[in-house]
């Protein structure tokens, strides 16, 4: 696989930037000619990953989120969302449906489940006190 384009963005972890993040990634992926469904899948997964960083990694909206997108020549897109927040105690546990650390705030606990369902692969690595990295991959044109 050869890289044909890539972009890196640093976003403040503020509410509202999840909307900018998903729109930006969708626009960047347009050169791979995705279907509307594929673009919606990518937007949804990016929104989940960035919202997690805003809401859970940094509790006071004070940190930064690194968003990287790499496009490959065989129509694969890799998206990496990295924060330097508090980290996940148990990343495997956090991926289970309905897992949430904030049930009183009506978080559904479906973020990772959605990312998994809407993308081809999901990798989560996390270190307590150091932060979390979420890697998402999707092949465009798989159902063509």
């Amino acid at each position: 696989m050869k890289v044909i384009n890539n972009v890196k963005m640093i976003l403040p972890a503020k509410r509202g930037n999840e909307s900018f993040a998903r729109a930006s990634v969708a626009a960047f992926c347009a050169s791979l000619s995705p279907t509307i469904e594929e673009i919606n899948d990518i937007k949804t997964a990016v929104s989940e990953a960035v919202t997690n960083a805003i809401v859970h990694a940094y509790t006071d909206e004070s940190g930064e989120i690194l968003l990287e997108v790499v496009l490959y020549d065989d129509k694969v897109v890799d998206i990496t969302v990295t924060d330097e927040g508090k980290g996940l105690e148990d990343p495997d546990e956090a991926r289970k449906p309905f897992f949430t650390t904030k049930p009183q705030e009506e978080h559904s606990g479906m973020g990772f489940t959605i990312m998994e369902a809407f993308m081809d692969t999901l990798e989560v690595t996390s270190v307590i006190g150091r932060g979390t990295t979420v890697k998402l991959r999707k092949k465009i044109g798989k159902n063509a």
Partner: peptide, 13 residues
Amino acid sequence: DFMDSTGIGVLLG
């Protein structure tokens, strides 16, 4: 136009 799992939480609530 768009909803994610935050929206699921709002609807479930």
